[in-house]
């Protein structure tokens, strides 16, 4: 069996591709959040950062390339992640056959129970988020190149902020179970690993969800304007 069929031909292999693409997203959301905290340092710092993303890699990479390579990796990861999720979900749905009449929720917490629906929410969110703050298509007052303005004006809308906040809660739930699940899938499970896997997943989820919640909240409260 070749490596490719080993990864794509079995559920265990597909889970590995999910865990790896998920780990790439984790690194991305951490970097994305950290970068955005520059908004607290004012318009200059923030716009400089947004521009910096495009100049990154200079003089080795031409203008904008870093960002595009980065985006290509993310899109590829997204395709792999979502395709595997879809394929595994179908396999699991087919595997039950007749449904149970009586259900007892054995050890199934809200986070693990919402991976699939929560994943769809995230997919919709990612699409909306790009159309909102990257392309400006769904932004009522978008000024190309002025990321700070777009950010503040975007979150001044209460419904938009509420949508973002709900989606961050969904992201936190997905990350809490996803990180733990990825540790299992990648076999990170020594005696010491067993102690830190749950706490690490929880901290990661709290940092990412809580950290990103700060942005809409600080605009709504006028802390950032």
């Amino acid at each position: 069996m070749s490596r490719v069929t080993a990864l794509y031909g079995t559920s265990v292999g597909k889970k590995i591709t999910m865990a790896v693409s998920g780990a790439i997203f984790v690194l991305f959301v951490l970097a994305h959040w950290f970068g955005n905290t520059k908004v607290f340092m004012g318009p200059e710092a923030f716009n400089h950062y947004a521009e910096g993303l495009r100049e990154f890699g200079d003089p080795f990479l031409p203008y904008g390339w870093f960002l595009w390579i980065f985006r290509a990796v993310l899109v590829l990861s997204l395709v792999v992640h979502v395709w595997s999720a879809w394929s595994l979900t179908r396999q699991s749905w087919a595997a039950r056959g007749t449904k149970y009449k009586k259900k007892d929720s054995l050890n199934i917490d809200a986070a693990s129970n919402t991976m699939r629906w929560g994943g769809i929410v995230l997919l919709l969110f990612v699409t909306y988020h790009i159309l909102h703050l990257t392309t400006g298509t769904l932004h009522p007052d978008f000024i190309p190149g002025d990321a700070y303005h777009n950010f503040v004006a975007g979150f001044q809308s209460i419904p938009v902020s509420v949508v973002y906040m709900l989606c961050m809660i969904a992201l936190g739930l997905h990350l809490y179970h996803g990180t733990w699940s990825a540790f299992q899938t990648l076999g990170f499970d020594g005696p010491r690993a067993q102690k830190i896997r749950r706490p690490l997943s929880l901290i990661l989820a709290l940092v990412v969800a809580g950290g990103n919640l700060l942005f809409p909240v600080s605009v709504l409260t006028g802390f950032v304007s």
């Binding site: 079995t10 979900t89 595997a95 054995l106 050890n107 693990s112 733990w180 299992q184």
Partner: peptide, 22 residues
Amino acid sequence: MILQMEEEAFGSCTNHGACAEA
């Protein structure tokens, strides 16, 4: 063993942990 398991129409693990509890 994993290839045989795949042949048998079982579903895919999501690390819920219901198995260990049961």
